[in-house]
Structure formats: structure tokens, C-alpha cells
Amino acid sequence: MLKEKLDEILEQIWILKEKGKISLINLEQINEGKVILENLKELRNLKLIETGGEHLTLTETGRKKAEEIIRRHRLAERLLADLFELDTEEYEATSCQFEHILSENVTERICSFLGHPPLCPHGKHIPRGECCHKLSKKIEPLITPLGDLEPGYEGKIHFISTHHHGRLEKLSSLGISPGKIVKLIQARPAFVIKVEETEIALDKSIISEIYVKPQEE
């Protein structure tokens, strides 16, 4: 439990830093005045933070550790929001648990699977991991919503994630289903895609549920 509490506080400090509001008072405010002195002492002993009066900073090790927590948290949010389409409340709560348990390897897999997303569902930055840096020459995501392709490009459908009744069946009866290669013909005024020799116009809300792996030209 203590470890989790410490993780949480590191995370809070990191977010304060992200907002440029890093100070002891602000940290205490977040925790509603509850005593966190014990924890801070512990963190200082672990050489993760430095304090002095009002002053509060993360050490290099602390920053790294905090960043990893944030990264796990925000990647988990992406995963739960995009793939499993959980409600905001639900995915936020679950992500808070995920951040403590995901191993480094699992985190990398998730990151790659999602195509090294730069932002969390709230639009905040997801700290980059090693897997992202390896790909930094070519940050093209592995999997992306079909609607995000440039018109004229093709992608192979990996999954269709929808909770709209009947949509999945409708798409699959048109031959739009995992494994098929689709080409994005145009994006406006409506999306038009091509599967085999069939061209189909559809709404953005539908096309953004079709995830593809971009194909090399």
C-alpha cells in the first residue's frame, strides 16, 4: 500500500510540475490537507524528491520514476477508452490501478499496439518510452483510425471497435472486416473508402471506429 501511495504522490508532483505549479502548498491542497508528511519524508529518503521550506523538486531518479507512472496511466487510459470504449469515469478509475501494476514489457507492448500515441484521451502528453524512441525516425503509428490516413493511402483493417447496434454486421456484410485492405479515397465532404471494387461513403463516426495498419505504397 505504501508503494502505491508513494507512486500517487510522485504522480501528483509530476502533474503539478507539468502545470508549472509545483509547490508544497499545492500538493497539500490536492490531498485536502491530509497529512502526507510521512510520505514526503519517505520519498526524500528514497532520494526521489528534494524539499526545503516551500521548495519541492523531483530528483532525476524521481522524475524518471514519476514519468513512468504517468506513462502507464495515460497509456492505460488510451487503451481503455479507444479499444474497450469504457466511460470516462470507468477508465479513469481503472487506469489509476493499472499504473501500479503494468510491467515495463507490458507497457511497451501496449504502447506499440496503440501506435505510440502522443496524447491521452484528455489531450495531455504521454511521456515517451524507449519503444517510442526506437521508432522516433518514423513515428508512423502501427495502428490508426482509418479516417486518419491521408486520402489515397491504404490500410489493412485490424479491428473495428463499435458499440453501435448493427454497425459491425452491416460493415462486415459489405466486406469491411479485419484483414481486408481498404483505401481512403477522400475525407470530405464525407469519407469515401474502397474495398475491392466497392466504393462506400460513410460518416466520420463510423470510419473512426475502423482501425487499420497503414500499408506501404
Binding site: K170, A201, L202
Partner: peptide, 9 residues
Amino acid sequence: GDFILEIPP
């Protein structure tokens, strides 16, 4: 309903 419409050549 959903806008899914085949566009013939």
C-alpha cells in the same frame, strides 16, 4: 441511421 452508402462507378 448510419450513413453507409455504396457509390457505384
